[in-house]
Design a binder for these strands. Structure first.
Lengths: 214, 214
DNA sequence: TAGATTGTTAATCGATTAACAATC
DNA sequence: TAGATTGTTAATCGATTAACAATC
């Protein structure tokens, strides 16, 4: 967590996002009510945790029926800030950056990627979906003009801290950090890490450990 | 965590991966010793946590100097299973799958992506770096032939559970799940989630919450 | 009505932090 | 030597689970 900006504990917020994803699937399937028990089974939790988590929301369930999926989706959306469209820019037009720029689910959930930047002048000008890669010198202007909220760091680990500073300087309020580095940000800026390589290493540990046991 | 396969608590394992990343940077910079205090500052932790974490490893520091970076890197590598090369396949040759297939840092850390698959016959045959997209029917044979350890799920949320089952059936021991869905796996299979969209939603919550306070 | 399910309080469990003797 | 830093134990803090009265 970058900053203690909210009052709901971080582990709960992370599960709220999972509930939202799952509820959206249920609604698409026409399910109108869901119990804490059913939700728990689908997501690998206990019903106690689910009820505890949902008690942070402005919603109440009904005995014998559970929670109305339509209401639950609305309330989760609102609490997670998903009722507005967040503007984001990506820095780093490598494979990962370009993939995220055109990642359909982001747009569907209200994250509008409105720019992609790279320090390497040789990739500037390249088309990425409906965007064109811009040089870092154009970053501040775009962030200001489009009132960009979020910067997505998809640069090599060596560049991460410096690019983070450029993004903060340009005025973004939050960073999604995909570079495998811990970045320091000033008070008031939020950072969430998405370190896929570290996830792989966690998996490596689990495999290694389970293998040793045999 | 998919399975309680190891004896080191999950939060500690996750930090060990971070230590490893950071130590590799220090070594590249020629740093030979590092104290728990310095490590803590670099990674946003307390020195107490660092010492507690490192006590799970087969290493000891020296008063007034700290830990030798060379030894620490070795021991972390070994504990995280990074002293062997793990074979992995990707399922889903969309933007994200293709980006991961050619992601340089994975290879550098000993994760060998040796196949990429897709259910859509129109993308089968497409070149992705040094690989060629194969159809799902070829999955079991490759997993067996190459003794693949890890399956990487980069498919749309609707397909995730089914593809996970195909991977497990084919014989992988662990899954890295990039699809925004909770997947159920049999006992003995490890799953680590890398849900970027959920990370973005956590960020959305933080921004939303910090904005409300003003 | 009887049984299922919520909402909430209390109990347990686990993770982080503080403290400090040992030691370089 | 004096001061810095480890390794470890105990204290604190927070998250999860259990339990159960209220209620539909």
């Amino acid at each position: 967590m970058g900053q203690k900006a909210g009052s709901i504990p971080t582990p709960v917020v992370r599960r709220l996002a999972k509930y939202l994803m799952h509820i959206q699937g249920l609604r698409k399937a026409g399910v109108e009510w869901v119990s804490s028990q059913t939700l728990a089974e689908a997501l690998g939790l206990t019903s106690s945790t689910v009820r505890q988590d949902l008690s942070h929301l402005d919603i109440s369930g009904i005995s014998k029926r559970g929670y109305e999926t339509a209401t639950l989706e609305d309330v989760l959306q609102r609490e997670l800030g998903g009722d507005v469209v967040w503007k984001a820019v990506i820095v780093g037009a490598g494979n990962l950056g370009c993939a995220l720029a055109t990642h359909v689910p982001f747009a569907k959930q209200g994250f509008d990627i409105c720019g992609i930047f790279d320090a390497n002048t040789r990739v500037v000008g390249k088309k990425v979906g409906r965007l064109t890669v811009q040089g870092m010198e154009d970053l501040p202007a775009l962030v200001r003009k489009e009132a960009v909220d979020i910067g997505i760091l998809a640069v090599p680990v060596e560049a991460a801290q410096q690019v983070a500073e450029q993004l903060v300087e340009a005025g973004v309020a939050g960073l999604l950090n995909l570079a495998c580095a811990h970045i320091q940000v000033p008070e008031g800026v939020s950072v969430v890490d998405a370190h896929i390589l570290e996830n792989l290493q966690e998996l490596s540990y689990l495999l290694h450990a389970s293998r040793k046991k045999k």
